[in-house]
Write a protein that binds this DNA or RNA. Structure first.
Lengths: 213, 213
DNA sequence: TAGATTGTTAATCGATTAACAATC
DNA sequence: TAGATTGTTAATCGATTAACAATC
């Protein structure tokens, strides 16, 4: 529940998924949905859906259910899809370029405004609408444009150092793809670690477990 | 606990992280570590570490702690890092190519043996050590090489259809990067959904929350 | 033997599910 | 009004933490 202040992170982590499913329903022209119907679609319990949504106040209507478009919008607002957080990608290797071109930043509250790499040979390379800039320009760029979100696609050995530097340049949120558990002790800094290697290992475990049956 | 059969998925999802940290410790030449020391390093409780490791039997030794190399090896065995599951990537766009070149499959129990795309213009393209093959060759390829793991880097509209086809061709594990919640009703099929968009949205929520303080 | 630290049981905490009164 | 479905409280379940006896 927690009408007091913070919402539990288990709930938060489910919100993007709700948002996705509601988006799909909207596309299909569905106007209303009950927690039971939605629960079948999303493979959750109806109880959980009602519990989750009520963390933020009564979005539903007794006897009717939830208005899809309205609920979609409300959850979007909670998540911050309408924000325009200036975002830079650090590292223009395969992964950095893929993230920069593949992820829709602007529908997720972020505005991609730069991509940086240390390597001379990558400078000037076109990545989507951006041009790779040298890391030596980072400081000047940050003072001028004041980005707040950094996507880290760099080797693990560089991650902590670069992250600390970025914090000193005013960056406050880190989406970290390096094989390193970034943690920053400053207050008001947010880190989201993505460990693709861990995810693959989990799958390998599952494959092995199924095979052994 | 569960010496009976299945380990809870909360425990499983922590194993790759243990494995990573133990790998680092090994590199640094650390021979032994106590649950308390490891807990400080990983920002967990010592209790949880002992609880987790004991799901698989006593890896430690009273009064001494855990032998780093041995524990690393044991967890690796549990996860299946020594397996050689034949793996194919479906979709050779930005993301598919990044995954194929950036992820170390072989240290995670997988052997990357092919990358496929539907688009004519991508056929023949070199991606790391592999060459992009047309989707029309998929059936023949699978009958011949019998891959078991598929990495899906395709648009969400195609995902369910292609996954079903791959199941019929004997694939059993899916690492799914499409913006679609893949679920397969066959028995003994494992799916690991990676939703990078959801991860970014979670970060945006965090950014917004910190900002509002 | 004394000290350290595990393995394991018991206590606590939080998250999920069930139930039902409130209400559209 | 009757039916449907929420919002919300209570019950259950599972996961985390604390405690301590076992043992190296």
């Amino acid at each position: 529940m927690a009408k007091n202040g913070t919402i539990s992170s288990s709930v938060i982590k489910r919100l993007p998924r709700y948002y996705r499913f509601l988006g799909e329903l909207m596309k299909n022209g569905t106007e209303r949905i009950s927690s039971r119907e939605l629960s079948q679609l999303m493979k959750l319990t109806a109880s959980q859906i009602r519990q989750d949504l009520n963390c933020f106040g009564g979005f539903g209507q007794q006897g009717y259910g939830y208005h899809v478009r309205q609920l979609h919008e409300e959850i979007g607002k909670i998540l911050g899809v309408d924000k325009k957080y200036k975002t830079i990608v650090i590292g223009a290797g395969n992964l950095g370029r893929a993230i920069a071109t593949h992820i829709n930043f602007d529908t997720r509250g972020c505005e991609l405004i730069g991509i940086f790499d240390r390597k001379e040979e990558l400078k000037g390379l076109q990545v989507g609408k951006l041009t790779v800039t040298g890391t030596d320009e980072l400081e000047r760029f940050c003072r001028r444009h004041k980005p707040v979100v950094a996507v880290l696609c760099i080797p693990k050995s560089d991650t902590q150092e670069i992250a600390d530097k970025l914090v000193s340049l005013g960056l406050r949120s880190f989406w970290n793809f390096s094989h390193y558990d970034l943690s920053i002790d400053h207050e008001n800094i947010v880190v989201e670690n993505v460990h693709l290697g861990d995810s693959l290992l989990t799958l390998t475990y599952g494959t092995k477990t199924v095979e052994e049956q």
